[in-house]
């Protein structure tokens, strides 16, 4: 179902202080890397809610990259440590969901490691190629077809379910 021009798409969550700055440095240094990555800036990798990672995968990403300061170097003392703890569990859970290990990656990249931004992104793109497209957005549509009116199973992204709070019952 996927065309030959398929290119892996990576959503990257980079912390403001180290990895985002390193990506800036890669730019200032005119390093060249694969154009498959879309960087979302957060103040700390600790802000990376596992929901974001799932939303990126469900929304069409083939891989998710999280970048933070090296352990011990977090601008917010230990935010990256909290990320590491979540990430270790998330990897186990994603395995249960059938998502390949290489699709979600956590890297510590300091503000001076512009070159590491390049090598990590290039490497990840190459690792995603043999896995092929995850294409969950299309996949959910496909699965949704078995329900009579063909409406998609649910909208993974976009507006959260319309709910209104009622008084405590």
């Amino acid at each position: 179902m996927h065309d030959a021009n398929w290119e892996p798409r990576i959503v990257a969550f980079f912390c403001n202080w180290c990895t985002y700055t390193a990506a800036d440095l890669a730019g200032v240094s005119r390093l060249k890397y694969a154009p498959n990555v879309r960087i979302v800036r957060l103040m700390c990798s600790g802000r990376v809610d596992p929901q974001f990672i799932l939303a990126a995968l469900a929304g069409g990403a083939d891989g998710v990259l999280i970048g933070g300061c090296h352990i011990g170097d977090c601008h917010y003392v230990e935010g990256n440590l909290k990320t590491l703890r979540r990430f270790q569990m998330l990897k186990r859970m994603l395995a249960e969901f059938g998502i390949e290990d290489q699709r979600v990656r956590l890297e510590w990249i300091s503000a001076s490691e512009g070159d590491k931004v390049r090598s990590v992104i290039n490497e990840m793109v190459e690792q995603l190629r043999p896995l092929g497209a995850l294409a969950l957005r299309e996949q959910f549509k496909e699965w949704g077809r078995e329900v009579a009116d063909g409406q998609p199973v649910s909208v993974a992204l976009g507006e959260a379910k319309q709910e209104t709070e009622v008084a405590h019952v």
């Binding site: 798409r9 959503v11 979302v40 957060l42 990126a56 069409g60 990403a61 957005r137 992204l157 959260a160």
Partner: peptide, 19 residues
């Protein structure tokens, strides 16, 4: 979080992934 609300980030994710 101000400036980094869930809705802001979710919409950013959606945005970068829309073909």
């Amino acid at each position: 979080q101000h400036l980094f609300e869930d809705d802001e980030i979710f919409s950013e994710i959606e945005g970068v992934l829309t073909h």
